[in-house]
Simulated scan of single mutants.
Amino acid sequence: MSSSLARRTYQRIDRGIVPVLILVGWELFSRSGVLPPALLPAPSQVMLAWADWVFGLDGNTQNYSGQWIHDVTASAGRVFAGFGIATALGIFLGMSIGWSRKVEKLIEPTLQVLRPVPPVSWIPLAIIWFGIADKPAIFLVFLGSFFPVLLSTIHGVKTCDRNLLRAGAMTGGTPRMLLAHIVFPAALPSIFSGLRIAIGSAWMLTVTAEMVAVKSGVGYVLWDSYYFLRYDIVIASMVSIGLLGFLSDFAIKHLAAHVLRWQRGSTLQAKEG
């Protein structure tokens, strides 16, 4: 028991070495005078601004003081709305394209033409179509999340073992039963990989949209504080986005570990910890 506890403690310390070294080096460099403190705030200064943004301690961040939860909630709502729509549509179309050659020939060429178009290039049209509100941000998040989910689902379906399908068909399985009980479970590892990529894209796109088309959220705070030369708040916004993206990915990763329990003894995931 004691050796197990020591191992877990070592793993936690090991994971914190790089962040601690970065923070210490950043603090020392910021205080060295190579750059003006206003241009590169030290981590301690960023933490003070962040604390006021979160808790409203002393009003140091002015209009942002105590508004962190409101800003994060606004951004998270856009992320999960766009991500949820992209997940549902991406899995549905991915299963259809991967399973049916007719659907693949009908739909995939159009999707492959649209896929290289950067989601940010849709911003002018999104503003024209949806105005300045949540809808353009949700639309951009959807665009950024959709294709990773779609392509990972197609890959998962197409790499399904044919022997499993033959065995299912021999026992009287209908195409719908084969899809539900063999193809979809076999595609889940690829689908979860796509979801992890998609959630990162979702956070990036919602921040981009909030800089241009929305007047609330973490991305808006980042861009607005830049105009007022509050780089401590800019960095606090960047760190907030990174943490929110990390937590979202962490949730998907652990959901995948729960759903894909059958992989634990046969893949390298068994060595993770």
Rank of each mutant, 00 (worst) to 15 (best):
Q112L: 15
L151A: 13
P185L: 12
W223T: 03
G173T: 05
S65D: 11
S65Q: 12
F92K: 04
C160H: 09
G59A: 14
W53N: 02
R101S: 15
V141Q: 04
L35C: 01
G168L: 09
G77L: 07
I123T: 14
P37K: 00
V24G: 05
D58G: 12
G242L: 01
V46D: 03
A88G: 05
I13M: 02
R196H: 11
D161H: 09
P189G: 14
R31D: 02
Q269E: 15
A213E: 08
L28T: 06
G245T: 01
S96H: 04
L35Y: 00
M95H: 05
L114W: 13
I197G: 14
S240N: 05
G173Y: 08
G66W: 12
L244M: 12
S121E: 04
R196S: 10
V72A: 15
D161P: 01
W50M: 04
A256I: 02
V183M: 06
G168Q: 08
L222C: 04
N60W: 03
F250Y: 09
I197P: 07
M238L: 13
I138K: 11
R162Y: 05
I199S: 10
Y10H: 00
M204Q: 11
S30F: 01
A187I: 08
F142N: 11
R101L: 15
T61E: 05
S121I: 07
G245C: 05
S216W: 05
P41I: 01
R78P: 01
Y227P: 01
W129K: 09
A76W: 05
I182P: 05
A38Y: 02
W26L: 00
G77D: 03
N63W: 06
I241Q: 04
R8W: 00
A49G: 07
W122M: 14
W203D: 04
R7A: 09
S30A: 15
I127A: 11
L5Q: 00
V183L: 07
F228W: 06
V221N: 04
M211L: 11
P41E: 00
F142I: 11
G77C: 02
V20Q: 03
P175S: 10
I182L: 13
A51L: 15
P116Y: 08
